[in-house]
Amino acid sequence: MEDFNSWKDLLNPEFYIKLGGFWLILFIIFAETGLFVGFFLPGDSLLFVSGIYAVDIIRETFGSTGSELLDTTILASSVSLAAIIGNEIGYYFGVKTGPTLYKRQDTMLFKKKYLYQAHDFFEKHGALAVIMARFLPVVRTFTPIVAGIVKMDKKEFLRDNIIGAILWSFLLIFAGHYLDKLFIQHFGIDLKKKLELIIIVIVLVTTLPVIFKFLFGKKNDFSKYENHDSE
């Protein structure tokens, strides 16, 4: 079992893979939307690095199938399912109690500004937001809640939830697995030895849109949310 050495480990996907393997990966993906506290955890980079270790993860959990493709597919399918379930819980939480979140005070694990950002993102992109949000840290945590708050049709949400989860999981996990093989075979580079650089690149690519919107986008009209709360 991997030892916890510093808070930096919490941002290192390799730490979670070595600490809890298959089941911890699924829990983290579920927690991002199902428990609403996983927005600070390494979602995209966790999937990419999990793809690099896919065969090892499946072998240690269930025993290898003998096929790298099948092992990677099992991992990606399981992650997709965890992501779908998490989003569904987020949606129903939004339907039942979502509006009260606008009145909730900020805590270490909950920031109201993220809810506003997700609301704006959902209003701008509509139903497509459920799919697109999968690829945006923080936004993907709160978008299903907002979908529930605005009473998005549950069948449409389920459809978009499934599509988004499958695209997100399979693209990142298979990219990690096969890019690792590609770099070893053609360039002699082992991506396992370049994980810190890979994580930095993935974090920058996935968070730049959110940072750009936060710094240069229009300020939220908080009064409209206050009016919504008072209805």
Score class of each variant (00 low, 15 high):
Arg140Cys: 05
Asn87Phe: 14
Phe170Asp: 00
Ile211Ala: 03
Met1Arg: 07
Ala82Gln: 10
Leu41Gly: 02
Pro144Arg: 11
Pro42Phe: 04
Leu26Ala: 00
Gly43Met: 08
Thr141Leu: 09
Leu11Phe: 15
Asn227Val: 14
Pro137Tyr: 12
Asp190Gly: 09
Val201Cys: 04
Tyr102Cys: 08
His125Gly: 01
Ser169Trp: 13
Lys103Thr: 12
Tyr225Ser: 00
Ser80Thr: 13
Leu208Ser: 13
Glu14Asp: 11
Gly94Phe: 12
Glu68Trp: 11
Phe142Met: 01
Gly148Ser: 06
Asn161Lys: 03
Ala133Ile: 07
Leu10Glu: 05
Leu10Pro: 06
Tyr91Lys: 02
Gln117Cys: 07
Ala83Ile: 08
Asp153Arg: 05
Gly188Thr: 11
Pro137Gly: 04
Pro99Asp: 12
Asp229Asn: 05
Ile52Asp: 10
Ile25Tyr: 08
Leu19Gly: 00
Lys192Met: 06
Ser80Cys: 06
Gly43His: 11
Tyr92Ile: 05
Ile84Glu: 05
Lys213Ser: 04
Lys151Arg: 12
Asn227Glu: 15
Phe30Ile: 02
Glu32Tyr: 10
Val130Gln: 01
Ser67Asp: 07
Gly148Asp: 05
Ala31Thr: 08
His125Pro: 06
Leu179Asp: 03
Ser77Ala: 15
Arg159Met: 13
Ile58Phe: 12
Thr72His: 03
Val49Glu: 01
Asp221Tyr: 13
Gly20Tyr: 10
Met108Lys: 15
Phe15Gln: 07
Leu69Ile: 14
Ile189Leu: 08
Glu88Asp: 01
Phe62Leu: 01
Asp3Gln: 07
Gly21Phe: 08
Glu156Gly: 11
Ile163Val: 14
Phe27Ile: 10
Leu81Arg: 01
Ser169Glu: 07
Asp153Pro: 07
Ser230Glu: 14
Ile184Asp: 07
Phe39Gly: 00
Lys193Phe: 13
Ala129Gln: 02
Lys112Met: 04
Gly21Asp: 08
Asp180Pro: 04
Gly148Cys: 05
Ser67Trp: 08
Arg159Asn: 09
Phe214Thr: 15
Ser80Gln: 05
Leu171Val: 15
Glu32Asn: 09
Tyr92Gln: 01
Arg134Phe: 14
Tyr178Ser: 00
Asn5Met: 09
Phe39Gln: 00
His228Ala: 13
Gly98Val: 06
Leu171Glu: 07
Ser6Gly: 03
Asn87Ser: 15
Asp221Phe: 11
Asp71Ser: 01
Lys8Gln: 11
Gly63Met: 04
Ala133Arg: 04
Glu123Val: 11
Gly98Asn: 06
Pro209Gln: 02
Phe27Trp: 11
Ala54Pro: 10
Ile184Lys: 09
Leu35Met: 05
Asp106Gln: 03
